[in-house]
Design a binder for these strands. Structure first.
Length: 295
DNA sequence: TGCCAGGGGTTCA
DNA sequence: TGAACCCCTGGC
């Protein structure tokens, strides 16, 4: 798929983009490190860069604070820009529910995030709340990441790499980042990744069954967290993470009865097939923003 | 004001 | 299968 863009100063201007809305992308639950600015744009930290994303108009997106080299090396893949989302949408629009969800979150794209950061972030997410998860990740970055600079009046830091985080003792993580009982899980997983017992580069080449199994052997990673990591940082778009929100949405809109988590994952793959991961994001955003299934 | 439930699940018995 | 779990916020 051809990408229509031009470079202007420190900006990349994306023209004629379909399916790209920063609000949908960042607030559909896949990422934690973004900040909504006063002008409605989003500033995000990834791959040791500070990037600002503005929806200029219906068909134009501006990537601020970057350059063509980073665009080609990082952001095209990060934003999944080579993928034609109209194909996915057409494939998924088999029922009125999904049609509504897609119309609502039409600008969602699944980001390709950094595996290690994604692993730790979703370990933190267990039995936790989004504002607190974000705070913990921010504290970890501030204290153990690299200073990247200031943007729009705020200092930004990279997420620490495995060798940096592996050094931090559980007690300190708990104290500084307020991660609670997840402290040891983070410490242990960071060390396992750091000493290559779990090798991220090798993991990229595993088939999905093997990868899921390997991830679930890590402390703090169960079925749901493993699925999130696979979908958001290992490009496994057939994966359908089942959290409490998706459980409610699926039960209310598709299954019409109480169903076990594992069963929901299986049914979802039957219904949505190879694009189950995209379906999950559309449903999550639609369901959560509209409080579907909430008692 | 103060108490209590509940949260992007995982782990351990 | 079920209880426990840090911590924090929102609701009463």
């Amino acid at each position: 798929m051809k990408i229509d863009y031009k470079v202007l100063d420190d900006k990349i201007i994306l023209n004629n983009v379909e399916s790209f809305n920063p609000e949908h992308i960042f607030e559909c639950g896949q990422a934690f490190r973004w900040y909504r600015e006063d002008d409605g744009s989003y500033t995000t930290i990834a791959y040791k860069k500070i990037l600002n994303v503005l929806l200029e108009d219906e068909n134009t997106v501006i990537l601020n604070n970057t350059n063509e080299e980073d665009f080609k090396n990082i952001w095209i893949d990060y934003f999944d820009l080579k993928r034609d989302y109209s194909i996915i949408k057409n494939k998924l629009k088999g029922d009125t529910t999904m049609e509504k969800a897609i119309d609502y979150g039409y600008g969602i794209r699944i980001l390709n995030q950094e595996p290690f950061e994604t692993m730790i972030s979703f370990i933190i997410s267990a039995n936790n709340q989004i504002p607190r998860i974000r705070k913990s990740i921010e504290k970890i970055s501030e204290n153990y990441g690299e200073y990247l600079g200031e943007y729009k009046g705020k200092n930004h830091y990279s997420f620490p790499n495995p060798s940096e985080l592996a050094k931090i003792k559980p007690e300190e993580l708990r104290e500084i980042a307020r991660v609670g009982f997840r402290d040891k899980r983070i410490y242990d997983t960071a060390n396992i990744v750091n000493n290559r017992e779990f090798n991220i580069e090798e993991a990229k080449n595993m088939d999905s069954i093997e990868l899921r199994k390997a991830l679930m052997e890590l402390p703090g990673i169960g079925p749901k967290v493993a699925d999130c990591i696979m979908l958001f940082s290992f490009k496994r778009s057939e994966t359908f993470p089942v959290d409490v929100w998706i459980k409610r949405v699926m039960e209310e809109l598709y299954l019409h009865e109480e169903t076990k988590q594992k069963e929901i994952g299986i049914k979802a793959r039957e219904i949505f097939g190879e694009y189950a991961g995209f379906a999950q994001q559309y449903l999550f955003y639609y369901g959560r923003e509209n409080s579907i299934g909430k008692k």
